[in-house]
Every structure is written in structure tokens, then in C-alpha cells.
């Protein structure tokens, strides 16, 4: 019986975790070489900032960081440390890479979840509405806006939002995560953070919102043409119930897949959004690490991000089983 495969998720999980580890390892090695190919290193960047860029000083720094060793030896060291979950030390920040990243992680996760929620919930509401009024005025308006959001670069949207809502209207702060001069605590702090988060979350959400609207609309139109929708109508239930219960439940299945694959994209987008809005998250850290040639930190972020993406994709696949009864784990 195929029920048995439903009740044996451990084999599935084990397999997927093994593949995930392989993927992370491959990503780590490829990124290591990519970053090595980039011109400049941490020693040059630090020496440049210190203003004493004598070759001796740079060589001394390189020796201190282990940058004078052959590339393959460096790779070996890196992988050996990775195996013990040691991501190394950032000389630039004078802090463990793991500590650095995990300090910044909550801000990024918060921003990511907020924009993800906006994109998914907005995508569902507007997508369903567009499908319900297919080819009529509401659908045309929604589809046009979705197309515009899809075609506009996020950083530009971010700048325009700052210009309109912060500079002209003065409704929202221009950047940062908290009002540093207010020293808010408790509830006031939460409100303050939420206030700061509105623009970056929207900026990051818009592109995905556009995708999800189109995806949900197409999925709904597909499902609405199926027989069981007519059967549901013959049961005398309301049109909204048919839309949101019968049709949407089927139409969100492809949405879930796409959201899963987009989670990595949200992380990548964080670099742009967090930079534009000076949001103190991992994306900003990555951007700074890039400029400072702190390749070790950058590599640590990349490895952790890939682990995050692998894990969330696994969770999405597990969710699929919960939400779609015809899917069974193999």
C-alpha cells in the first residue's frame, strides 16, 4: 500500500538531508574559489584603510590571516573548520563570524518574514480577486499594477518610497531599524521597529507580490474550470466559499512551491533592501564584508544562507504533504 510511504517519512528526511549537505558542501567549495578569484584580499583592504600600505605590513597581515598559504591548503583549512561548525573569526570586526551573523540574523529574518507575509497574503487576495473578475475591470487593474511591480527594480522602488513617504509626506523614517535617540522599550520599541520596517518590507515584497498575484490568478482560473467547482456550486454554497475554500486550496499548491524556491531570492534581495534602508541585517553585513574584502565572513554568510535555503525547501516539501493529500513522500 502506498499509505506506508506516508508513514515512513524518516527515509525521505534522511535522503533529503544527505542531498542538502552535499549541496551545501558544493556551494561552499564553489564560493571559496569564486571569492579567491576576486581581486584584492582582506590584508590589502585593511592596510589601505590604515594608510600604511607598505608591502612588509601587508605580507605580515597575510601571514597572520593565513592568506599566504597555497589556495588548496586554505580550502582544506576552511573545510576542516566547517566540519566542526567553526566558521572562523573576522579580523575586520574582531568577532567570531558566527556571533556576527547571528547578531544580525533576527533583523533579517524579521524583515524577510514581513515581506514574505505581505507578498503571499497580498498575492492571494489580489490573485483571487483578479481570477474572480477575470478580464473585467478589477482584473485588468490588478494585472496592470502587478506587471508594473514586476518590471520595476526593487532598489528604485525603495528610493521612490523613501522619497514619497519619508521625504515628502514624512510618514515613515528614511532608514534604520529603531529611532536611536528615543531609547524606546517594551511595546513602544515594537511599534518603533514596525514603523521602520514598513518601507523596506514593502520594497522587498513588491516584486514577489507581483509574481504571486499572477501565479494565484492563473492557478485559480485553472481550478475554476474544473468539474468539482460546478459541483460545489450545485451544493448551493456561497461564491466566496467556492473561491477561498474549494478553489484556492487547490490553487495555492503551485504557490507554495514557488515561495519555497524564492526564499533564497528573499535573502539575496536583503542585500539591496538592507543597504538602501540601512537595515542592520545579514544582507548589510554581507555588503560591508564584500567591500572590506572580508572574504572569510562573506563565505560564512554564503554557507549559512545555503544551509537556510536547503532547510526551508525541505520544510516546504514537508508542508506539501500536509496541504495536498495526493502527494506522498518517496
Amino acid at each position: 500500500m502506498s499509505t506506508s510511504s506516508r508513514s515512513r517519512p524518516w527515509i525521505f528526511l534522511g535522503k533529503r538531508l544527505a542531498y542538502g549537505l552535499l549541496a551545501i558542501l558544493a556551494i561552499a567549495v564553489i564560493n571559496f574559489f569564486l571569492l579567491k578569484m576576486a581581486p584584492g584580499d582582506a590584508a590589502e583592504a585593511m592596510a589601505g584603510e590604515a594608510g600604511t600600505a607598505t608591502p612588509e605590513y601587508i605580507a605580515e597581515l597575510r601571514a597572520q590571516f593565513g592568506l599566504d598559504q597555497p589556495v588548496l591548503v586554505q580550502l582544506g583549512h576552511f573545510l576542516a573548520r566547517l566540519a566542526t561548525f567553526d566558521l572562523g573569526y573576522s579580523f575586520r570586526y574582531g568577532e567570531d563570524n558566527v556571533t556576527l551573523i547571528f547578531d544580525r540574523l533576527p533583523a533579517t529574518l524579521m524583515l524577510m518574514s514581513a515581506s514574505l507575509l505581505v507578498a503571499v497574503i497580498g498575492g492571494i487576495i489580489f490573485g483571487v480577486t483578479a481570477a474572480r473578475y477575470a478580464n473585467r475591470a478589477p482584473d485588468q487593474a490588478i494585472s496592470l499594477v502587478a506587471l508594473l511591480l514586476y518590471a520595476t527594480p526593487p532598489y528604485w522602488i525603495g528610493l521612490i518610497l523613501i522619497l514619497v513617504f519619508s521625504v515628502w509626506l514624512g510618514w515613515t523614517p528614511t532608514s534604520g531599524m529603531v529611532d536611536v535617540l528615543a531609547f524606546n522599550t517594551g511595546w513602544a520599541h515594537v511599534v518603533d521597529v514596525a514603523h521602520h520596517m514598513i518601507l523596506p518590507a514593502l520594497t522587498q515584497a513588491f516584486f514577489y507580490l507581483a509574481i504571486y498575484i499572477r501565479l494565484v490568478r492563473a492557478g485559480m482560473l485553472d481550478v475554476l474550470s474544473l468539474d468539482f467547482v460546478r459541483v460545489a456550486r450545485a451544493k448551493g454554497i456561497s461564491e466566496s466559499r467556492i473561491m477561498y475554500r474549494h478553489a484556492l486550496r487547490n490553487a495555492v499548491l503551485p504557490l507554495l512551491t514557488v515561495v519555497g524556491t524564492n526564499l533564497g531570492g528573499f535573502l539575496g534581495g536583503a542585500v539591496l533592501t538592507e543597504t538602501v534602508f540601512s537595515w542592520p541585517g545579514v544582507g548589510r553585513l554581507m555588503f560591508d564584508a564584500m567591500f572590506a574584502r572580508d572574504l572569510n565572513l562573506l563565505l560564512s554568510i554564503l554557507v549559512l544562507s545555503s544551509a537556510f535555503v536547503v532547510l526551508t525547501n525541505l520544510v516546504v516539501d514537508l508542508l506539501y504533504v500536509v496541504i495536498n493529500p495526493t502527494v506522498e513522500l518517496k
Partner: peptide
């Protein structure tokens, strides 16, 4: 209020008539 309550309907394709989820 009339559908299913006073007039019920049986359809052609039973495999497609029920919501899979």
C-alpha cells in the same frame, strides 16, 4: 437556497466531481 436543498444534481464525471484536497 434551492440548489441541493430542493433540487439535487448528480454529475457525469465522478472522478472530477469531488474536490481532491
Amino acid at each position: 437556497k434551492i440548489r441541493a436543498a430542493r433540487i439535487g444534481m448528480v454529475f457525469q464525471e465522478p472522478m472530477a466531481a469531488l474536490n481532491p484536497v
